[in-house]
Computed example of a mutant assay.
Amino acid sequence: MAASGAPYPVAMSARSRRASVEDVHELAYGMPHVTVVHGSSGNPVYQVGQRSFVFFRNPRPDAVDPDSGERYPDVVVFWVPSESDKQALVQDQTSPFFTTPHFDGHQSVLVRASRIGELTLRELTEIVQDAWLSRASPTRAAAWLNAWRGT
């Protein structure tokens, strides 16, 4: 127990709390060299070097509720470093991440915004950082990693 009487240090409890959609925006925009453009419906698309790494998708026919057939209105796309990273996320039955045939061969995963709370802030932070790193230039990625590691 922490000296304050809390079961965990404040920093740890903040990192282990459930993530929110607002956290997606804050984390993505908080990465270096990020710009935000808006899609046709005003949906935010976070980019580094004009390359998208997180975006809020318009409802599309490939992501639908299996019971109602309604298009999901709240899909968020995150780039991933590799196909194996993608498969690890989408094959885990406890994970909120999924993919569709439209994204076959595309290094990204999907998650419904309504399910972001199934992730901890720490997990979401890693997803956003990995997304940024997978799309940033090698120079920007190396600079960020060196700064992050404190070197």
Rank of each mutant, 00 (worst) to 15 (best):
T139A: 13
A143D: 14
V24K: 02
R18E: 13
S20H: 06
P66M: 00
V77R: 07
A63C: 10
M12R: 14
L119H: 05
A131I: 01
D62L: 01
F78M: 09
S52Q: 15
G117T: 14
F56Q: 11
A3G: 08
S40A: 13
T94K: 15
Q87A: 13
W144I: 00
F78P: 05
A11P: 04
L121V: 14
S41F: 11
R17V: 00
S68I: 01
P9S: 12
P9Y: 10
T35Q: 10
Q50W: 12
D62S: 11
V34I: 01
N58P: 08
A113L: 04
H102P: 06
W132Q: 04
S82I: 02
L124K: 07
Q87M: 14
G30K: 00
A3N: 15
H106W: 10
T139M: 11
P96H: 02
G30E: 04
P44T: 08
R15G: 07
R140M: 12
S16L: 10
S108N: 13
D92I: 11
G42H: 06
V109N: 07
R112H: 04
T35M: 03
M1H: 15
D92E: 13
R57W: 08
H25C: 01
G39D: 05
D62I: 05
D62C: 10
R135A: 06
F103T: 09
V76T: 05
E22F: 09
F97W: 12
W148D: 13
Y29V: 10
Q91I: 07
E118I: 03
A2P: 06
V76P: 01
A63M: 08
R115D: 13
D67Y: 11
V34Q: 04
S68N: 08
G30F: 03
H25A: 03
W79D: 05
G5I: 02
D104Q: 12
Y72F: 09
A136R: 06
F97L: 10
S40C: 07
P138V: 13
R112K: 14
A131M: 00
A131P: 04
A142P: 06
V90K: 00
T125P: 06
P44D: 08
M1R: 15
T99N: 11
F78Q: 09
W79F: 09
W79I: 03
P66Y: 00
V111S: 05
S84I: 08
L124M: 09
P81T: 03
H106K: 11
T35W: 06
T35F: 04
S137E: 13
L119R: 11
Y29A: 14
W79L: 06
R18W: 08
A28V: 05
A136S: 11
P59G: 00
E26H: 15
N58Y: 06
N146V: 07
A143C: 04
T35I: 07
S84H: 09
P73R: 14
S20C: 02
L27F: 09
W79S: 10
A141N: 12
H25W: 04
A131G: 05
R17H: 03
D92K: 13
D67P: 03
P32A: 02
N58C: 10
R57G: 07
R112P: 06
L110W: 14
V128D: 11
L145F: 02
I116Y: 09
